[in-house]
């Protein structure tokens, strides 16, 4: 448990430091205690309306993608599995694109249709890849899994392009803007829409942590130890889709976080999901907040999408994972 709390403190630290960093220098004293109306207090406006919601969203997105990646890796018994590599993110994009292009993006009683569509898209993608890549013995060979993921990615991307092509100008613009993703459109309501999904998913997954450990050692062994494998697979895939859908619906597909974070955490805290899930949650949040801080400041005043930063780190990391010597 010691290491998990280390990552919790790392998370708190990034949460406190990141709002102070940005292209515009802000005066913290003035922002917090400035003797003027909020509307006129530029420092407070930057801090509370621009930076903090964005950082919270980055934290939630990073936490969610990392948890979702950790679960997919254990269910598929493969450390190259992640929302991005399996086409789950692009499945979520397709779901959201369909809703946006049909003009069905409503919000009913606080529930927006976009995350629901993204959730269904993600779940569809997981189901597809799972059934394509599984052998008769319940294994998921790396090559088949990655090919199934690539296929799913291309297929969903093609469908999104098709929808894009059929859309009129306004819809097309909204779609492009959304597909580019990013955390720059964050406000507190987007933060609140993602928050329950990430924490619900995380809580449920923690509850079945030991079952997930056993499944990651093999389905038949898990069954013989008393795990209801089919039930746990369903719970795991639904929760991973729920989280990925919620994150992708507001932040767009951000690659590689779900691959890198659980992997690094496994090297440090080991493969036990009861430790891996919380440390991935905290480190995933810290990781994406740091990446986003870099994205906001590296060529300021221009902001680059955070997905560019994660991909620049994640691409080489993925190649290393694929080529590293196995024992």
């Amino acid at each position: 448990m010691g290491t998990v709390s280390t990552f919790f403190f790392l998370f708190l630290l990034t949460l406190m430091v990141a709002p102070l960093i940005g292209p515009t220098q802000i005066d913290l004293g003035k922002a917090l205690f400035g003797d003027m109306a909020f509307g006129e207090n530029v420092d407070a406006n930057i801090l509370f309306l621009a930076r903090i919601p964005r950082i919270l969203l980055a934290g939630l997105a990073g936490a969610g993608l990392a948890v979702s990646g950790a679960v997919l890796q254990s269910l598929l018994r493969n450390d190259l599995a992640a929302p991005f590599t399996l086409g789950v993110s692009s499945g979520a994009s397709l779901g959201a694109a369909i809703v946006i292009s049909l003009g069905w993006s409503y919000t009913v009683a606080g529930f927006s249709t976009i995350p629901i569509a993204a959730f269904l898209g993600a779940l569809g993608a997981i189901t597809l890849v799972f059934s394509l890549a599984r052998t008769r013995h319940g294994e998921f060979p790396t090559t088949v899994l990655l090919l199934a993921g690539v296929t799913a990615n291309f297929f969903f991307a093609a469908m999104v392009m098709f929808i894009h092509y059929l859309s009129d100008f306004t819809q097309s613009f909204r779609l492009v803007r959304w597909l580019m993703g990013g955390l720059d459109i964050a406000d507190y309501s987007t933060v609140l829409s993602v928050c329950p999904m990430v924490f619900l998913g995380f809580g449920v997954l923690m509850f079945v942590g030991r079952d997930l450990n056993l499944i990651s050692t093999g389905v038949h062994s898990a069954m013989s130890r008393g795990v209801d494998v089919v039930k746990i697979q369903k719970i795991g895939f639904v929760m991973a889709s729920l989280i990925t859908g919620a994150v992708v619906a507001v932040a767009g597909p951000i690659g590689f976080v779900g691959l890198i974070v659980p992997h690094i955490m496994r090297l440090i805290v080991g493969p036990d999901m009861r430790l891996l899930l919380p440390s991935s949650l905290f480190f995933g949040a810290s990781f994406l907040i740091i990446c986003d801080t870099v994205a906001r400041t590296i060529i300021a005043p221009v902001e680059i999408p955070v997905g560019v930063i994660t991909a620049m780190i994640g691409g080489p990391f993925f190649i290393w994972l694929l080529k590293r010597p196995k024992n």
Partner: peptide, 23 residues
């Protein structure tokens, strides 16, 4: 075949699963 780097003691302790409740 073990996809993840579990320790020997962790593998043996997994045998206790049927006696333990969730979480």
């Amino acid at each position: 075949s073990m996809a993840f780097p579990f320790k020997v003691s962790e593998i043996v302790l997994m045998g206790r699963h049927p006696y333990l409740s969730a979480f």
